[in-house]
Design a protein around this nucleic acid. Structure first.
Lengths: 288, 288
DNA sequence: GGGGTCGAGTTGTACAGCCAACCCATGCAC
DNA sequence: GTGCATGGGTTGGCTGTACAACTCGACCCC
């Protein structure tokens, strides 16, 4: 319809994505205010010259990002004007570091090949007895140690990782160039106490509390590509998430979670001072 | 078509929701295996006797829950058979505790009314100088102290909270009975050290690390209903989230919370030419 | 002023169809 | 065997239509 410069420019692939990007820009710029109402679907459809279905697809993206509400009978309302980070900024330390204006670094401390244990076979969907590649890396922000990353790769991926230079900053990006794509990930966030490796590399006291993120990532075909455990120094990161009645992805888990009844081991582990130390050099990931 | 008992029964509201529930049940029961392929959309449509569009809506739900992949050219693949918890199990301590088979408890330690500070006014979208209700509660799991909850309510909600008995277990459920619905929430997870209140109530050492979740919740109309900060003893909970290239909600934040630039209103002319020009006030971003 | 009714406006649900893009197994050429 | 082309199967994207369910302000009655 009207070609007055409000066209879904951007050349970003599909129609609904361009519309979504355009609306997101307007929202984060504050054009509708916080708590303000968006135009009706019909009005947007006419404005962009597309069908209402396409507009609805675009708005579904914004809703799932937590930018707008959505309910029957009334126009959509702007929930917040916060910038929403992309999938890669969550998955890749490098990509995230750059997005906050810091210079990411990574130093490979060790790389080994060994037989996978039972849990790793299940999580990475490998035959029992398969080998895996295990890495330990120190990640830095503008030279400052910030995080310890322990990753387990299946052979297909590990063989590529083993070829990378020891000071490679972004494994994710380099793997992408080898055709290994990260598409989905499950994350589990909790608190853990520093073991001797942690304290040595991060320069903190042994037993000091760290923020832990365990992750299991898959490629677009649903094939697992990594199992990772990241431990952050306190005060360096916070994880944020939006959820809603419409579509929720986050959940809270009881900690003594896998197997056994929750009734068993209460008082025993309530106040773990600095155990957890040597119990796993293998990253545990979400869900068992 | 065939009425052979594979009909989307369940009486759970809309068609696509019933289909989604039916498929979810089949997946978590392992009917397709982990890594197995789902039937084609067309086959499912014929099976359930609905249109392909409805099937796609149902599958979109499962995809956003992280149960299945989705890409052009090939059938959907089962990602995992993990149970996905509901929105309320994340939002409400009580609802979560019950879902893991423990008995939740809550004891109001203090309730006060005081003027809101600047940040609270912005976050709760209140006029400067408005009053807020502030609560401090100790939450328990089967009698064991687990979490400290500090919540700030706007007057509309606080007036109701102030009427609740001091030993009420679930504020969320009681508020629901008063017509106050929680629909969307932003969560930020990081690590914090126990202050004197924390150590006294939780029975831990002062300065011990706790897992912190800060939350801002809104009702279906996008109006803020609470601002909360929960501090968990280590080893009691873990937060899990799924994200994907398709739709991501989680992100990672640099901690020295970049005190954001006051959003400039330049782009106000990006607005779609529409009515309602006078209804926006606070351009303040929704950040916590 | 208080309270209820009504209706225009808006989003949700469901249907149908068409084509493009893509994956992958098959089979053929070399 | 290896590599490449082909083609069927499958999902993604977009359009159009129709109706249901819901919100909310305007309006009327008392």
């Amino acid at each position: 319809m009207q070609d007055d410069g409000a066209r879904p420019v951007g050349a970003g692939g599909t129609l609904y994505r361009r519309v979504a990007a355009d609306l997101r820009e307007a929202i984060t710029a504050g054009s509708y205010g916080s708590g303000g109402r968006l135009p009706a679907e019909g009005a947007l459809a006419k404005h962009y010259g597309v069908s209402r279905g396409t507009i609805r697809q675009a708005l579904a993206v914004l809703r799932s990002d937590g930018l707008v509400t959505s309910r029957r009978g009334t126009r959509r309302v702007v929930l917040g004007t916060a910038r929403v980070q992309s999938f890669s900024e969550l998955l890749s330390f490098t990509s995230w570091a750059r997005s906050v204006g810091e210079e990411p670094g990574g130093a490979m401390e060790s790389l080994a090949r060994r037989p996978a244990d039972e849990r790793e076979c299940e999580q990475l969907r490998l035959e029992p007895g398969s080998e895996v590649y295990v890495t330990l890396r120190l990640r830095t922000l503008s030279g400052r140690p910030v995080m310890i990353e322990r990753t387990v790769y299946p052979p297909r991926v590990g063989e590529v990782v083993a070829q990378l230079p020891a000071d490679a900053v972004s494994h994710t990006e380099l793997l992408l160039e080898h055709g290994i794509v990260f598409s989905d990930a499950d994350h589990t966030i909790d608190l853990v106490h520093a073991d001797t490796d942690d304290s040595r590399l991060l320069g903190c006291a042994a037993g000091e509390a760290l923020l832990r993120e365990r992750r299991r990532s898959t490629d677009p075909a649903g094939v697992p590509v990594e199992l990772s455990e990241d431990r952050y120094l306190p005060g360096t990161v916070a994880f944020t998430v939006h959820n809603s009645l419409a579509a929720s992805a986050l959940s809270r888990r009881h900690h003594p979670v896998p197997e056994q009844h929750p009734a068993e081991q209460h008082a025993a582990d309530r106040r773990i001072p600095e155990q957890h130390a040597a119990d796993q050099q293998a990253p545990g990931a979400a869900e068992g």
